[in-house]
């Protein structure tokens, strides 16, 4: 189903959310990236990625959580992973999309012999890429749920992730993520994911709140 949903990832990245209003921002893309990187690289735990979902209001007054920025670190040790390798067809699809995205960014026509694309596109890389096309309306999805309830969500381990009613959590589990965290803030949500089981950390929660206190 992921293949079907993401057949046109390139177009989606170009066109999605064109009608969305931006809230007044106290940050820019560069500082956001630095904050995400600081959070992940400075953490004691091994996080695979961090995403900032930014809240905004569309023309009809609906609150939307959309992609703000993300930092992908990757897995510490891919050999420890116990997920089933994706099929050859799925890998071909991912590589094709990656070539198109490379072409979109570089402006150079896609080539079937692109070295960096020949490397397997891992499940967590793909999950991170697909996340760029997603948004959550009116409390939908794991980030939306955290934002609307103003309560952090911490799902350590497969059982906890699978017990979530949110599709994003189930999708994450399918792609090998074993911990998902969503921390709501005034103007968005910080989401963290890991292929390892990581239990609740007050230190991390505080770090997020300090790092993403944009008005300071």
């Amino acid at each position: 189903s992921t293949t079907t949903h993401n057949n046109d990832l390139t177009k989606t990245l170009n066109n999605q959310q064109q009608q969305q209003h931006q809230p007044s921002m106290f940050f820019n893309q560069e500082t956001l990236q630095q904050r995400l990187q600081t959070l992940i690289e400075g953490a004691r735990e091994s996080w695979t990625y961090a995403i900032f979902w930014q809240s905004s209001v569309d023309m009809s007054g609906v609150t939307i959580l959309g992609w703000g920025d993300g930092y992908y670190k990757g897995e510490e040790d891919k050999l420890k992973r116990k997920t089933t390798p994706s099929s050859a067809i799925e890998q071909e699809h991912r590589k094709k999309v990656l070539r198109e995205l490379n072409s979109l960014i570089s402006g150079v026509p896609a080539s079937s012999s692109d070295d960096q694309v020949d490397e397997e596109v891992t499940d967590t890389e793909w999950f991170f890429l697909v996340s760029m096309t997603q948004s959550f309306v009116n409390g939908g999805g794991l980030p939306g749920h955290a934002f609307y309830s103003s309560v952090p969500i911490w799902l350590p381990g497969n059982d906890r992730i699978l017990s979530s009613p949110c599709d994003r959590a189930k999708q994450a589990q399918l792609f090998g993520l074993q911990t998902m965290v969503c921390i709501p803030l005034a103007n968005g949500v910080v989401e963290l994911g890991s292929t390892e089981v990581i239990f609740h950390s007050l230190d991390l929660m505080n770090k997020v709140r300090v790092l993403f206190n944009f008005s300071s």
Binding site: Q17, Q19, Q20, Q33, G74, L104, I105, E119, E125, M132
Partner: peptide, 26 residues
């Protein structure tokens, strides 16, 4: 409104660049 696709493209460009580095050092 154009800021959103631009933000995504910036994220994507960064992701692809870092992936390139990871592949080269693998």
């Amino acid at each position: 409104p154009a800021a959103v696709p631009q933000a995504r493209k910036a994220s994507l460009a960064r992701f692809l660049e870092k992936r390139k580095e990871r592949v080269m050092h693998a």
